[in-house]
Design a protein around this nucleic acid. Structure first.
Length: 887
RNA sequence: GCGGGCGUGGUGAAACUGGUAAACACAGCGGACUUAAAAUCCGUUGCCGAGAGGCUUGCGGGUUCGAGUCCCGCCGCCCGCACCA
């Protein structure tokens, strides 16, 4: 899911770059290398991040989840961003008194493991588990506040066995179905290809011409839930609007009618058509069917030219290049259909390349005047273009359609009993009523959503728990025989399906009749694995898929965080699964994710060497003027665009190397600091170094502190101390607000401000010292605690220095409370405008009387007013005064 | 084509329900410390102008005492879906 394709890891950083941090020969005072593991151990020892499956402590629950990673080998910057964002939320919510469930696991099945097996001879299991071990260590170095006891990998039978149980439950509930369906078949690899894997009609891996093949496949009946999956989108208020729209478009509800056209002649055959515009039936000039339509096949059987046309369509396919060209092509079958309402009228039946067998009924009626696509087709083949909807302001006698179809609202003309009705609106209803009255059609709701094909001809996936018996047919594996475990002794050097050619695995006795039978050798789409892992996290060790008490306590996920690339499929499948699990008695919620946040990508400059080959960032030395050279060769380097990190462009930075060089807090701080988290961010060396410097600066502020924090409040505060306290309490209020609204970059800026204020106070406090040291301690402690969701290790280090005897870790402390009275300004600056233009400012105590403010304001801008007559005085308390003058 | 989003300094960006545009950071410039550099610290930095002052949130209108923010029309960029009947 969270996979290498989007944000690959960088390669190992070059030793020359690793030797010395780019910042300073003087040894840094804060030794993150020693501190970070120490605090990680402390959190572990205190069990700070653990929660129970069914907690009884009365705290409100909060479930934070980031999309779990695909174990590709190393973590990449996309992971760092994703898991840092989630960790900020988790740590903040914990401090706010929530019991926070924050788990991590592995989306561990998938094709890359099989590719590794084929290319390098490593078993997929070994490859995967080793990657998991590496990546777990890398994630642990980030200091994430995870309950690691809940970790699981989907490739573990202890996980996928429960998935098989869910499959069987869904099967019983009628949510799983076996259907014949057309697939892209790669004859060399012996596997089914997704549409995206067919390039110019050839398999992306083998290069062999792809064949269309009809296979029996397992389907999840997601279409059963289409209406509620659509309707419930409205309730997902904490989802990005665009994701909801993408889902709505994908589900694709449309209202229209099915109309049965009788074939002219003596046959009793009919062709059924789906239309959203039955009100324009009188504007019909042809009927068109998809090349795969049964009627087209019948025509081909009689007519070689028709067969040739169909073959041509199939050859061209529906690749994007072809669609782009958008040439409407057709073949007249010679068949004719009768019009449903006009006695004696008939229209030709064409096979057309733009009609899709998968949508509606695979047949349309052509109404060229009111549909652009039909119009293009009609013009090309010289078909009639009768207009039946009259736009406002047009004359029925003269209105006609030239090269632009009219698809707006209007009044129906030339349509017998529909004449004069509003189109589409009431005319659509009237047309449907007429169709139903005559028994030749009915109003229907049509969905774009298709059932979810889950069969994959792969090894490294969940075996489908089914046995095929010659006598009994399809037989579910009995539940007491679960899990159906993948065999380990498999070969990848033979073409075809790995599970199919295993010598013994598939041969079993039929559970029903005992005769020799065969296991299903397809495995489940890996999207299935990620469609319920969030539920499993609630009770990860349970002997059943989920424990009701746990899942009902923790679900739904309160905040889900991940990439926009999963806006449709993963989220839709998970929504389906949650409903299906509710139906089969596993859960009581319907929607898995109450809140969704989609993060932006991590980008980086790309570099090309003199030979035109892409270079890794650490092979490049950049100069101040923007030019760059190769670090060793000194040859010129072209600095390319800033774009999403990708393996092929080599514009990647390895998080492991960054953490080793600067520490986890620096990496976390930088990735949060520059951009709003939903926007793409550019990873720059300068940015990381800047973040690193700030960690050192914060530490220096603590190091120079002349005492502890807390203790008795002093009798009085000097002006500088009061000013510092004001910033401190304002910072609490502002950072809290920023964290609540995912404005982490703003939270970071407020913490910089607080650090600056401490430095300012250090300079200003020379004459009157009253309470300054105390206020400084308060400010430092506040800075540490406000920064703790973002840089948790340094926060602990700072806090421990301020409170050497503290019984608690920052990770265990409640969130600081901002005191609004202390944050309030002693004086406010009020802008004074004349006619809306700024002409001066005045300082007043907050809440000063209007008369007083106006008088001061008028005095302030006396020169600008210069005897002009003031006709209006606008006073916004504590903010602005605006004088409107005559003339 | 349909749907959505975004245009603010040299750069990333901030701006509560319309109320002093540019917080914070990066880069730059000047200075201190240093044999020198790095680090650190101080100052400065939207644009035009010597200055007073004027101008400024893609462009053009509008509403308003007041618009980055609301409305209308353009221009540009990005993303999603796409022969969906």
């Amino acid at each position: 899911m969270n996979d290498a394709a989007d944000q690959p890891s960088g390669h190992a950083i070059h030793p020359a770059a690793e030797a010395e941090p780019a910042v300073g020969a003087e040894p840094p005072r804060y030794d993150f290398g020693a501190a970070e593991p120490r605090w990680q151990a402390a959190w572990e020892a205190h069990g700070c991040f653990r929660v129970e499956d069914q907690p009884q402590d009365g705290r409100p629950k909060y479930y934070v989840l980031e999309m779990f990673p695909y174990p590709s080998g190393k973590i990449h910057m996309g992971h760092v961003r994703n898991y840092t964002l989630g960790d900020v939320v988790a740590r903040y919510k914990r401090a706010r008194g929530f019991a926070v469930l924050h788990p991590m696991g592995w989306d561990a099945f998938g094709l890359p493991a099989e590719n590794a097996a084929r290319e390098r001879g490593v078993h997929p299991a070994k490859w995967t588990w080793e990657n998991i071990a590496n990546m777990r260590a890398e994630l642990q170095r980030m200091g994430l506040s995870l309950d690691w006891r809940r970790e699981f990998a989907t490739c573990d039978p202890a996980y996928y066995g429960h998935q098989q149980k869910l499959f069987l439950d869904f099967l019983k509930a009628g949510l799983v179905e076996r259907q014949e369906s057309w697939v892209n078949w790669d004859p060399v690899d012996g596997t089914v290809l997704a549409n995206e894997q067919v390039i110019d009609g050839r398999g992306w891996r083998s290069g062999a011409p792809v064949e269309k093949k009809k296979l029996a496949q397992w389907f999840f009946r997601i279409t059963k839930f289409a209406p509620e999956l659509l309707a419930a989108l409205d309730g997902l208020e904490r989802w990005p609007e665009r994701v909801r729209l993408m889902q709505a478009n994908w589900i694709g509800r449309s209202e229209g009618a099915r109309v049965r056209f009788a074939l002219a002649g003596d046959s009793a055959e009919t062709v059924e058509v789906y239309t959203t515009r039955p009100d324009t039936l009188f504007g019909m000039s042809f009927l068109a069917i998809a090349p795969e339509h049964p009627l087209a096949a019948a025509a081909a059987a009689r007519d070689p030219a028709a067969a040739a046309f169909i073959a041509e369509c199939r050859r061209l396919g529906t690749s994007e290049a072809v669609i782009e060209a958008a040439e409407k092509r057709g073949y007249d079958t010679g068949l004719r259909v009768a019009h449903p309402f006009i006695a004696g009228a008939s229209f030709p039946v064409w096979i057309a390349n733009f009609v899709l067998m998968e949508y509606g009924t695979g047949a349309i009626f052509g109404c060229p005047a009111h549909d652009q696509r039909d119009l293009d087709f009609a013009r090309k083949y010289g078909l009639a273009v009768p207009a039946v909807v009259l736009p406002a302001g047009e004359d029925a006698a003269t209105f006609s359609v030239a090269d632009k179809a009219f698809d707006g609202t209007g009044i129906i003309i030339n349509s017998d009993f529909l004449d004069g009705l509003q189109a589409p609106g009431e005319a659509k209803a009237a047309a449907i009523a007429a169709l139903e009255a005559r028994g030749i059609g009915q109003g229907v709701v049509n969905w774009r959503l298709r059932d979810w094909g889950v069969s994959r001809q792969r090894y490294w996936g969940t075996p489908i728990p089914i046995i095929h018996c010659a006598a009994c047919g399809v037989v579910p594996v009995p539940e007491d025989q679960l899990p159906v475990v993948l065999p380990e002794d498999v070969r990848f050097d033979v073409p075809g399906k790995v599970l199919d050619h295993h010598p013994t695995w598939k041969h079993v006795a039929c559970p029903r009749c005992g005769q020799p039978a065969e296991r299903e050798t397809d495995t489940l789409d890996t999207f299935v694995d990620s469609s319920w892992y969030f539920a499993r996290f609630c009770s990860p060790l349970a002997g059943e898929p989920v424990v009701r008490g746990a899942v009902d306590h923790w679900m739904p996920v309160d905040q889900y965080i991940g990439g926009i690339e999963h806006a449709i499929l993963h989220l839709l499948y998970s929504r389906f699964f949650t409903r299906a699990m509710k139906l089969t008695g596993h859960m009581s919620v319907e929607e898995p994710f109450a809140g969704l946040f989609t993060q932006g990508m991590v980008t980086h400059e790309s570099y090309k060497g003199a030979d035109g080959a892409w270079l890794y960032p650490d092979e490049v030395e950049k100069h101040l003027d923007g030019t760059a050279v190769h670090r060793q060769a000194g040859t010129p380097v072209t600095v390319g665009r800033v774009e999403a990190m990708s393996k092929s462009k080599r514009n990647t930075v390895d998080p492991g190397a960054i953490i080793a060089r600067f520490g986890a807090d620096t990496a976390r701080w930088f990735i949060l600091s520059d951009n709003p988290p939903d926007r793409d961010m550019e990873w720059t060396e300068a940015g990381v170094v800047g973040a690193y410097r700030f960690t050192q600066r914060l530490f220096r502020l603590i190091d120079g502190h002349d005492g502890q924090a807390g203790g008795a409040v002093p009798d009085g505060f000097s002006t500088a101390a009061k000013a510092l306290r004001r910033v401190t309490h304002r910072s609490i209020i502002a950072v809290t607000e920023a964290l609540e609204s995912f404005a982490f970059n703003v939270a970071v800026a407020r913490i910089y401000q607080l650090a600056n204020a401490i430095a300012d106070a250090d300079r200003a406090g020379d004459s009157e010292q009253a309470g300054l040291s105390w206020a400084r301690g308060e400010a430092l402690e506040t800075a540490a605690r406000l920064a703790s969701p973002m840089m948790p290790h340094l926060a602990e280090e700072m806090y421990a220095r301020l409170h050497p005897d503290a019984a608690h870790l920052v990770a265990e402390l409640p969130w600081p409370e901002g005191d609004a009275a202390l944050a309030a300004a002693e004086t406010v600056t009020i802008a004074v405008q004349v006619m809306g233009k700024l002409r001066g400012t005045i300082s007043m105590p907050p809440g000063a009387a209007a008369a007083e403010v106006l008088a001061a304001a008028e005095a302030c801008v006396a020169q600008a007013l210069d005897g002009k007559r003031v006709v209006k005085r606008v006073h916004v308390p504590d903010r602005i005064v605006n004088f409107v003058v005559a003339g």
